[in-house]
Simulated scan of single mutants.
Amino acid sequence: MAKTQRLDIVTPEKVVFSEEIDFIVAPGVDGELGILPEHAPLVTALKVGSLRVQQNGKFFKVAVSGGFMEVKNSRVVVLADTAERADQIDVERAQAAKQRAEQRLGNKSAEIDVARAEIALQKAINRIKAAE
């Protein structure tokens, strides 16, 4: 039997996923990290991106907007600011959020929080890409 590892994806609101998996690729702040069962212990910050998870030979994505990942004893815990499985993403809502962020960035008003608008744009684009 193939070895597996436990994956728990948790946000402040809920547990998004908690099952055995084969493999995960996560968007670490210093690059992508591939984690197999029995990986060496590590803790890393995550950036906005998609987790690519292999379970029973099939891949699925989870859009995350930052957080942390801990790997220890064939268990991966992702503590994410937000996390959403690709099959549950409302693409129309994500596209609307992308348009709003682009409009805010296009408006050169001093009242616009540019950093916040850029993060909103990154999150919306990430959700759209994950859903594809």
Rank of each mutant, 00 (worst) to 15 (best):
Q5I: 14
L7T: 06
V10H: 01
V15K: 14
V15M: 14
V16Y: 05
I21K: 04
I21M: 01
F23N: 13
F23R: 12
F23V: 12
I24D: 01
V25E: 06
V25P: 02
V25Q: 09
P27Q: 02
D30C: 13
G31H: 02
E32V: 07
E38F: 15
E38N: 15
H39N: 08
A40K: 14
A40F: 12
A40D: 11
L42V: 10
A45F: 12
K47T: 14
G49V: 00
L51N: 01
Q54G: 10
G57L: 06
G57W: 05
K58A: 12
F59S: 14
F60I: 00
F60H: 00
K61G: 13
K61W: 11
A63P: 03
E70S: 11
E70I: 09
S74N: 06
V76Y: 01
L79W: 04
L79K: 08
L79F: 12
A80C: 09
A80Y: 02
A80I: 01
A83G: 06
E84S: 02
R85V: 01
D90A: 04
V91Q: 07
E92F: 10
E92W: 08
R93N: 13
R93F: 06
A94E: 01
A94C: 01
Q95T: 10
Q95A: 12
Q99P: 06
A101K: 03
E102M: 12
G106M: 04
N107F: 04
I112Q: 00
D113G: 09
V114T: 10
R116C: 08
R116A: 08
A120H: 10
L121Q: 00
L121M: 10
L121E: 07
L121G: 02
L121C: 03
Q122I: 07
K123E: 15
I125M: 12
N126G: 05
E132V: 11
